[in-house]
Design a protein around this nucleic acid. Structure first.
Lengths: 378, 378
DNA sequence: CTGAAAGCGCTAACAC
DNA sequence: GTGTTAGCGCTTTCAG
């Protein structure tokens, strides 16, 4: 009585006058007599048959879905990761499930645990903090997981990281190299892995030059444009040699080194903060880079959105996304993802690169055409 | 013989000494004796049982997944939609499947057709063009679909649209109101719905003021920052009264109206183009808005990334995302999504709003704190 | 090469 | 209340 409703293998079988087994074989290209193939294909086409992917998953044990979990898709860094992951996943027939955790710890853990519900064949996750619970959840994950970010070395989990300490050093050295001496630092939350590392890099770069961190020049805030602007204003308002806000009008350009007495460069822990800082400088009539140089991190699209174009440290977001996807896909094709990774966890590291643009040097090193690969074809 | 492997209802049943039916009931809160409940819950907890969502879907006929399909997640407009959709979906227990179609027609159709594979309970799609095949696919979609974008009125599909013709008019009128007379237009692909509408708005605004479109002032290109910059350069290089590129150096600021003879305002079909145009103006030493005013569309994050902050038409991306999600969720809770929408297709329209910032007026109308709702808490 | 039949793990009738 | 049983739609032995 297979009438009405959406067609199933059974419907097709009836129409083609064969068994459901034959239908399945033909549909999966498992060889059958030419005649059988033809009849099944005809019936399937006529009825507009589409295999039920859920039933297939139940039987096959794989959902052909991958999950990507990150804090907030609003961050351009995650956007470039998503693009890469989605693209590789799609090429192998996987769908992509997106999960914003809003940096809620419980949410991250829930994602990890929910791997057991068979909804997803594997997970790529960008945890913002790594707690013991995270490690435990990673260890006992029901399916392969790749972490984008730094993990304690004992953790038996595949991961892709970048050396953001070195990245931060790169930027600060560059600022010092171009003659800056009062390099301020606007950081994101200090108790996150990225926050801690970027601070470490800032500090170590200064120390390598015989300088020390001046706490008055360091601000900790959220990773947003608005927070960056606010932090910069606070910095200049409160920094030792700074004038009061009222003095900062357009004619400040006439006496550029006045404000610069307090700060002559700002290194920001990501591009959003840097953009905010640039806004604040502009609104105070300070020139970039003449009065204050600005550098960010992530080398996101935003670097090319700002004026002058923003010097930034490329932490390889797109590349990390691509590598993570590749690692996960590898894992899945190897053992079918049935066994969680053995003691053979792999770790790949992406080397940060400084991309110098006009926000730190009047005559930028690489004027243009330096960013061709994936980002260009937006 | 339910040993090893991941626990199933059967494993739990054995451990608790009850039947699988009781396990299912307890797990779904369908009432059982207190004692039974306790034993089942204990067994489940001890064994770390997680229900197999795939089996559940097969049995229940719903996957608890929603799909969002758009061109490219790299566009900030889609990012704000995704955030809203994901957030509403999550609140109702749905997961979110992301699908980038890269504006490939075949891909869009494939997504529509694949609704029949039961992977997803419903779809929100942003088609860039509407072909007869689209309409046919929409009509025969196996599950509820909500379209974000304009559809022929006969189409029996729920949709959320915005009046981008009116939006474009808003921007152009604003530019004319502030005294501009040579308003250039940088558009995206003209054969897309957004491209066509924005041009229509530009044209009609000019005509409402007794002006007509000067083809030399209109450029058609891709929706990217780079394309926007290139288009602006071409515009100034080739426009009637423009000087040669060599003349555009920093000292041009001394004779501002020189270039302005060719163009004194640029209206761009989206923020990315506008940002590119702003870059190009800066690099030519032209001042914004004194020499050339710039306005964009979408009111994306980019408006606050640029300097000066970009005047833009808010087309309610986040709001459209939210409404679309709500419509879809409504549809699903009504008829369980089994029946494709009846003749009762709903259409909601979001009214565009002009957000004036410093890129068009020296003293912006709404200095700050105008964008509190969803975008602020980035 | 093809068909019959056994599940994948779960929920929902249906009896007891 | 609880257990038994029948599927959801598909793939895959296992015979023939």
């Amino acid at each position: 009585m297979t009438t009405g409703g959406t067609p199933t293998v059974e419907t097709i079988a009836e129409h083609a006058g064969v068994s459901i087994a034959s239908v399945s074989r033909v549909l999966n290209g498992h060889g059958a007599r030419a005649d059988t193939v033809r009849r099944v294909e005809r019936a399937a086409a006529e009825l507009g048959y589409v295999p039920n992917a859920v039933a297939r998953s139940l039987q096959g044990g794989r959902s052909m879905q991958l999950t990507f979990a990150m804090q907030d898709i609003g961050n351009p860094v995650y956007v470039s990761m998503v693009r890469q992951i989605q693209s590789l996943a799609k090429a192998q027939g996987y769908r992509l499930l997106l999960h914003s955790t809003d940096a809620v710890l419980a949410d991250e853990l829930a994602v990890l645990r929910s791997l057991a519900d068979r909804t997803s064949d594997g997970l790529i996750i960008c945890p913002i903090r790594i707690t013991p619970e995270h490690l435990e959840a990673l260890r006992t994950a029901a399916r392969p997981v790749v972490v984008i970010g730094s993990l304690p070395s004992e953790a038996p989990v595949d991961s892709v990281r970048t050396d953001s300490v070195a990245g931060a050093r790169l930027a600060v050295h560059h600022l010092l190299d171009t003659g800056r001496r009062r390099v301020a630092f606007i950081n994101g939350p200090a108790d996150t892995v990225p926050g801690a590392n970027r601070y470490a890099g800032y500090r170590s770069a200064l120390e390598e030059r015989g300088l020390s961190v001046d706490p008055a020049l360091v601000r900790t805030t959220e990773f947003t444009i608005e927070a960056g602007a606010a932090a910069l204003h606070a910095l200049l308002d409160e920094a030792p040699a700074a004038d009061t806000a009222a003095d900062h009008t357009a004619d400040a350009a006439a006496e550029p080194r006045l404000d610069a007495a307090a700060v002559d460069a700002v290194f920001c822990a990501n591009d959003q903060l840097a953009l905010g800082a640039a806004q604040a400088l502009h609104s105070r009539g300070l020139r970039i880079p003449e009065d204050v140089a600005v550098a960010g991190m992530d080398d996101s699209t935003l670097t090319r959105a700002s004026w002058p174009p923003l010097t930034s440290v490329d932490l390889g977001s797109a590349e990390r996304g691509r590598i993570a996807a590749r690692m996960l896909l590898d894992r899945l094709s190897q053992d079918g993802g049935d066994a969680p990774p053995p003691a053979s966890a792999r770790t790949e590291t992406v080397t940060p690169r400084l991309i110098v643009r006009a926000s730190t040097t009047a005559a930028p090193t690489a004027p243009a055409a330096e960013r061709l690969p994936e980002e260009a074809c937006r």
